[in-house]
Design a protein around this nucleic acid. Structure first.
Lengths: 227, 227
DNA sequence: CGGTTTTCCGTACAGTGCACGGAAGGACGC
DNA sequence: GCGTCCTTCCGTGCACTGTACGGAAAACCG
């Protein structure tokens, strides 16, 4: 059996079966499947068919893996186009970001505990920065606008995800559901509205809040017209 | 030694040395001192001078303790006054909320993983609800306004706390600081601005973003005048 | 006084992240 | 061909986690 042909594709010593990329994508998959609480280095290694300690050849620590998985997931969002009307551009980017964070519900919890300094995170924020700087926003006002949008995005999805996680729990009895629905709709239940909640509900909530912020931003932009 | 006098002050059976309240306040103190990562049931018991398993007489699980500690901390915020100009009222409440979350930097990470259904959390959101309902906001628009404000608050403080945690780390070398500063100020560094960051920086950022949202809310209120 | 109930907690177990050191095998100089 | 080295892989072990279980002691009730 001419194994030499099969094996001869790279000249590095002891061509590795593992790699940083393989570990990171497996980590993201494990997080999708089991959540942050169910993520362990042992489970990750098992998912790769490797020994636990083999991972540490490519990764400094569990925290390191989480950092990398988070930045990979942020990369899924993609960058906004280089130009176009600012309002549609921002709306698109935030809606796509929310979609990615819903597909990877572990993201908000990780974001809450670590700075977003991965290459993908930095690239994305730079692109948004450019879009607003083009409209004449500068200095603290620019930073505040971006900070507001990203804080809103991430706070919203975090609340949304805990909502779904709470409702989907098998132990979620009617009483709990009612309390959570009340949390979402506040006094609406008392006013006779129905307390049903579905996906579309969150969609419109998200867009309403986003428009609130963009309206505020719009007045700022009119005060500082493009120079 | 007349122990009977010392011990005779309550007639309940086997008057307990521990209590739910004592556990919860000790938990908050431990979280303040060690953070979420350094929080363990063993450490909590040691802080109370008790055996680890004694805690479970008053508390179902570690998650339970965290839920209770979080709601207690939320209670520190206090409720907004029953009436007054809506804008000042909301600003005050959000500023006080931020102050509490800065004193207890573990709060955002916990909020990210559990629904805010404690009594204090519900009382606070009800009060804010009332303030905006009084201004003529109803239905989804009302829910969206509240959701936007709380998402912003919590997203902002989360980012702020990770910033301080990152900077205060002993291993934070100059390169890391520069990257984080860039993350905060985006391209400002490239534009020649100084990349120094201090508390006041975050204060003005927070107020700028808040005013952005409140401006957007203000236009909504003018469209739906108090009926 | 006996029995019951309520607190307290020692022990034990399955699980965690990761330090350490060894084993296996390709790469390379001779 | 043969040592030598260097890279990858990973078994073992340690300190630590949450908490199930069951027992000990103490206060109450009869």
């Amino acid at each position: 059996m001419p194994e030499s042909i099969w094996f001869r594709d790279d000249a590095r010593p002891r061509r590795p079966r593992l790699s940083r990329e393989r570990i990171v994508t497996a980590a993201a998959g494990l997080l999708d499947a089991e959540g942050v609480a169910g993520f362990s280095m042992r489970a990750l290694a098992a998912r790769l068919g490797a020994g636990t300690m083999s991972l540490y050849e490519y990764v400094r620590s569990k925290e390191d893996v989480l950092d990398l998985a988070l930045d990979e997931a942020i990369g899924e969002i993609g960058e906004p186009p280089a130009d176009g009307p600012w309002r549609g551009l921002l709306t698109d980017h935030l809606v796509r970001s929310r979609a990615v964070m819903r597909r990877h519900p572990w993201m908000p919890a990780l974001i809450a505990t670590r700075p977003l300094l991965g290459p993908n995170a930095l690239a994305g924020s730079r692109a948004i920065y450019g879009a607003l700087a083009r409209e004449g926003l500068h200095g603290p006002e620019l930073t505040a606008a971006i900070g507001t949008l990203s804080s809103y995005l991430y706070g919203f999805v975090a609340a949304e995800n805990t909502w779904w996680a709470t409702v989907r729990t098998p132990a979620a009895d009617a009483g709990l559901r009612a309390r959570v629905a009340d949390h979402l709709h506040r006094h609406e239940a008392e006013l006779g509205h129905q307390a049903q909640v579905d996906d579309g509900d969150f969609d419109t909530q998200f867009r309403l809040g986003l428009n609130l912020i963009l309206d505020g931003l719009s007045t700022r932009l009119k005060e500082n017209p493009r120079e």
